[in-house]
């Protein structure tokens, strides 16, 4: 195999440590400016709250979880820092993809050992588990594990340790999905 071809196949990712330092400085900036870290799952939560509130307002009022996030002044839950952050994340990703040449037509990425269908089922199941888990954990990997631990929260440390730990525990059972 020609090494030149292998090189060409490797997409241009930035050095992970450089990316980590940038991300750390960004997190620091977020703490300095907003007093809170980065978040991804909060936006989806607010989106769900908004939709349920629109479709079935009485049901949303009666549920202690939805009603927690419906602003008392009647404004939309979508008019929130978290939503704008998530929109930014989407376009930031798109910009990077465009710059490094990864912004392409719709496709499924999967291990050669499994079909695209299997990959999509796994992705959906993983998403549902992650969705439920993030609400119990008070945030996802960015909100609880990364920002939480960086701001020295004990809860953040727990979520991070459990998330990676359980990932390793179950990795063997799902190895077909990846390798």
């Amino acid at each position: 195999m020609d090494t030149k071809i292998v090189k060409k196949q490797q997409p241009k990712y930035i050095n992970p440590y450089f990316g980590g330092i940038l991300l750390g400085l960004l997190l620091l900036a977020a703490f300095f400016i907003a007093g809170r870290g980065l978040s991804a799952s909060g936006a989806v939560k607010l989106l769900v709250v908004t939709v349920v509130d629109k479709v079935a307002p009485a049901h949303a009022e009666g549920n202690a979880y939805y009603s927690k996030f419906i602003p008392a002044d009647g404004s939309s839950p979508l008019y929130n820092w978290l939503i704008f952050g998530a929109i930014g994340t989407f376009f930031g990703g798109m910009l990077s993809g465009a710059i490094f040449g990864r912004l392409k037509k719709l496709r499924v990425e999967h291990s050669p050992k499994i079909s695209a269908r299997t990959r999509l089922i796994a992705a959906g199941a993983g998403g549902i588990l992650f969705g439920i888990g993030s609400q119990f954990g008070r945030g996802c990997s960015s909100g609880a594990a990364l920002s939480g631990t960086a701001s020295l929260s004990f809860g953040g440390l727990i979520v991070m340790a459990l998330m990676f730990g359980i990932g390793y525990v179950f990795a063997w059972f799902f190895r077909k999905l990846w390798i």
């Binding site: 199941a125 588990l129 992650f130 439920i132 954990g137 979520v159 991070m160 459990l162 998330m163 799902f174």
Partner: peptide
């Protein structure tokens, strides 16, 4: 929550 997320992480 951490347990479910870990599971969701390795599956999804």
């Amino acid at each position: 929550g951490g347990f479910l997320m870990g599971l969701g992480f390795v599956i999804g």
